[in-house]
Design a protein around this nucleic acid. Structure first.
Length: 461
DNA sequence: TCTGGGGTCCTAGGACCC
DNA sequence: TCTGGGGTCCTAGGACCC
């Protein structure tokens, strides 16, 4: 092989036996598909604008939980230099000066709008992978659309018409190249939201213009290591030696390089794999010192995690609890700890889980610290229908009727209508959410009101 | 005053088994 | 002098994603 590259089709067997991992898809090239990435533009900001049309060309930002960081920006806000993940409080004056509209995150709204976008896509295309709340991959057989660009533009227009959400579409021979095409669709003003890297006359020249950090799968740590070695662009990364890549960035890094060489290694996942963990954690609105407050918070997070568990029809076999002080406050004493407990039998019973979480918390709690965050992680998940019984203890006769009744009440009358006393009533630790928009599409009481006035009609037939 | 949350995968190393 | 080989499972840590 030239350049020290490993031919994936030739050596796949070797990799398979040596590492027990498949590094590329075993597909004859003629069966290869075209991958398209459909990516909602500035998704959270676009969702907020749907119901505030007067903000269409104004700067908008959306904040993370606890109103901590900026996690979505409209193009106008990006131009002001408001970067992704920046702490809000440091930019408050800039935001006020430029009259940027600020929203706390409203996940009920974004989740519902996302569902509409994905439903639209799935009505139009048979092979869809919902990759995240604002992105989906679709796979198209070669030759299905004579003019891929025209097709992608019409797809974009349809999603816009059905949902009001603007999207960008990138097409490539692999998912990684489709991601790069999607990036070019956004950055290149001539692209008008669609970029097809397959028919480009010189794809390498495009890769030469892409920072290695902007390649899907290369994060800041790996990028720094690569740049230390003089590898700065996607093209240089693509041409790296395979053995070195595998050693330095593990099998995932090698896969990414293969994908840049148009060799598909990452398959379309139409059915999402079973979940392996369910977590709920939050930063506190103000630092928390007392065990009592922490117990309320942890009981509340456990309640939410258990609800997610039942919704997914799963049981948890293991529960983890963690807490930590604010690592940004270097001058304060720091402490962080976590502990795990394997439950006697998998369960989704909230009181049982709250009890276990409370014991774990008491075991790791140390007084004299200002805690900033705590959380609960449920793992060892199994389907609710297949519970493994304990040989030595009698079967758990607790039925699910209590949990079912609570879930029913809370879904009918709103979350938290009925809850365990352990979650408390005061909740001084509760996180901030000062600028949240209404749940326009998911709560009857928060439906938007439309006022229309009709011009006087003088004569009607 | 104020810095998110929820996931996944890979690897190395230790414990343990026969 | 000299102490196996092959395997699984679990965990922690590090990296990535949106």
């Amino acid at each position: 092989m030239s350049n020290g590259h490993i031919d994936p089709f030739q050596l796949e067997g070797l990799f398979y036996s040596k590492y027990s991992k498949i590094i590329c898809m075993r597909q004859p090239p003629e069966n290869n598909k075209i991958f398209c990435l459909v990516d909602c533009n500035n998704f959270y900001a676009s969702c907020e604008r749907l119901f505030r049309p007067e903000l269409a060309d104004k700067p908008v930002v959306v904040l993370s939980n606890n109103d901590g960081c900026i996690i979505a920006r409209s193009n106008e806000a990006k131009k002001l230099g408001l970067g992704m993940g920046l702490p809000y409080f440091k930019y408050e004056s800039l935001i006020r000066r430029h009259r940027v509209t600020v929203f706390s995150s409203n996940y009920a709204l974004y989740g519902d709008i996302s569902q509409r976008v994905m439903d639209t896509l799935m009505q139009l295309e048979p092979e869809v992978e919902i990759y995240s709340i604002d992105e989906a991959f679709i796979a198209l057989p070669h030759g299905r659309h004579v003019d891929l660009n025209t097709y992608a533009h019409s797809l974009k227009a349809t999603i816009d018409r059905y949902t009001g959400i603007p999207v960008s579409i990138g097409c490539g021979p692999t998912k990684t190249l489709a991601k790069i095409a999607g990036r070019l669709a956004k950055k290149d003003p001539g692209a008008q939201g669609v970029f097809n890297i397959i028919d480009h006359h010189d794809p390498d020249s495009l890769l030469a213009g892409i920072d290695v950090n902007d390649v899907w799968g290369i994060g800041s740590r790996h990028a720094a290591r690569l740049k230390n070695q003089g590898i700065r662009t996607a093209l240089q990364f693509k041409n790296c030696d395979d053995a070195w890549l595998k050693k330095t960035l593990t099998i995932t890094g090698l896969r990414t390089a293969m994908e840049l060489r148009s060799i598909p290694c990452i398959a379309l996942q139409e059915t999402p794999p079973a979940r392996k963990s369910i977590a709920t954690s939050r930063s506190f609105g103000t630092p928390v010192e007392s065990l009592a407050s922490l117990q309320e918070a942890v009981a509340t997070y456990t309640t939410q995690a258990a609800f997610k568990l039942r919704n997914a029809k799963l049981l948890a076999g293991v529960i983890h609890v963690f807490l930590r002080t604010n690592s940004f406050k270097k001058e304060q004493p720091q402490y962080c700890a976590s502990r795990t407990f394997t439950l006697p039998a998998p369960t989704s019973h909230t009181p049982l889980l709250i009890g276990a979480a409370g014991r774990l918390l008491r075991a790791i709690y140390r007084s004299g610290y200002l805690y900033q965050k705590a959380g609960v992680l449920l793992t060892g998940l199994t389907p609710a229908g297949y519970q493994q019984m304990d040989l030595f203890s009698p079967p758990d006769r607790r039925d699910n009727s209590l949990m079912q009744a609570m879930d029913k009440i809370n879904s009918r009358w709103g979350r938290d209508t009925i809850h365990s006393a352990a979650t408390g009533f005061d909740r001084s630790w509760h996180h901030r959410q000062l600028r949240k928009s209404p749940a326009y599409t998911t709560r009857w009481t928060e439906l938007p009101t439309v006022k229309a006035s009709f011009p006087q009609v003088s004569s009607m037939a």
